[in-house]
């Protein structure tokens, strides 16, 4: 398989991009995340799978502090996430996030969506930000939509704009929160292709997704979560062909069985 060979070529450095130690989170008295330990190296592509309500989304939303953790440590790119707003904004500007429902800004054009954060957060001159934005729109294959509003695009196009918008901040890490779950089947492929391309360039990625084909093609580690805990993590080959825990086996039989 050609994807396999590409994956072999992709390098993972020893440098730690994200380090999560003993992290716990509660919603009220509900214990959503329990003793999470996770180290992500630069260049790693991690897929997080699991039944709904297992805390996958909450976990990656803790990485850029859209959710606050109550105990333990999260260190992103050498910066620990605490209540310090400066640190939070610093981490957020280094970590891109793609949402299930795109969350594009409907009152701005596609180009303005992509240049807003570079101009206002990175203080990049408008001309230069626009040039970068056009380059990334080219990369996600919709340069011709730059002057339209998000409401005029299809779901798949909107999600690709959302990816371009994140990339314009030149992030070191990309988080994907079920990026294809709200899309029509015909449009899933165009978004996955974009993500695969990104992975091949060596971007550090954490994807919450139900696309097991994508996991097999690009991930170098699959993490299975249930009830707020990491139940199993392994290379995709091992994970899919030789799952260890009963819960994983059940999940895989249900998700791959039809």
């Amino acid at each position: 398989m050609s994807e396999r060979t590409t994956r072999q070529q992709m390098t993972i450095s020893d440098e730690v991009a994200i380090d999560i130690r003993n992290m716990n989170k509660w919603y009220g008295s509900f214990h959503v995340l329990r003793d999470i330990d996770l180290t992500v190296h630069r260049g790693e592509r991690i897929v997080i799978a699991g039944p709904s309500g297992s805390g996958k989304s909450t976990l990656i939303r803790c990485i850029n502090r859209l959710e606050e953790h109550q105990s333990g440590h999260i260190v992103v790119d050498g910066v620990e996430l605490t209540n310090d707003i400066k640190n939070i904004d610093k981490v957020r500007s280094e970590v891109g996030m793609v949402f299930q429902h795109f969350n594009l800004f409907p009152h701005l054009t596609v180009l303005e969506n992509c240049t807003l954060a570079p101009i206002w957060v990175r203080k990049i001159p408008r001309k230069q930000a626009e040039a970068t934005a056009r380059r990334f729109l080219e990369k996600v294959k919709i340069p011709e939509q730059a002057d339209k509003y998000p409401g005029q695009l299809s779901g798949g196009q909107q999600q690709r704009v959302a990816i371009a918008r994140s990339l314009c901040m030149q992030p070191k890490i990309m988080l994907f929160d079920e990026p294809t779950s709200a899309l029509d089947p015909e449009m899933i492929k165009e978004v996955l292709d974009t993500m695969i391309e990104l992975a091949e360039e060596g971007m550090t990625m954490i994807c919450v997704t139900h696309e097991m084909g994508f996991a097999q093609a690009v991930a170098n580690r699959v993490i299975f979560m249930d009830q707020g805990q990491i139940v199993e993590q392994n290379s995709p080959t091992e994970f899919f062909n030789n799952p260890k825990s009963e819960r994983t086996k059940l999940f895989l039989s249900q998700i791959l069985g039809h």
Partner: peptide, 18 residues
């Protein structure tokens, strides 16, 4: 306004006033 708009703004690193 959908919550996602606030989250997207936060995720891009915009501070409260921006």
């Amino acid at each position: 306004l959908p919550k996602g708009q606030y989250e997207a703004a936060d995720a891009l690193g915009l501070d409260y006033w921006k």
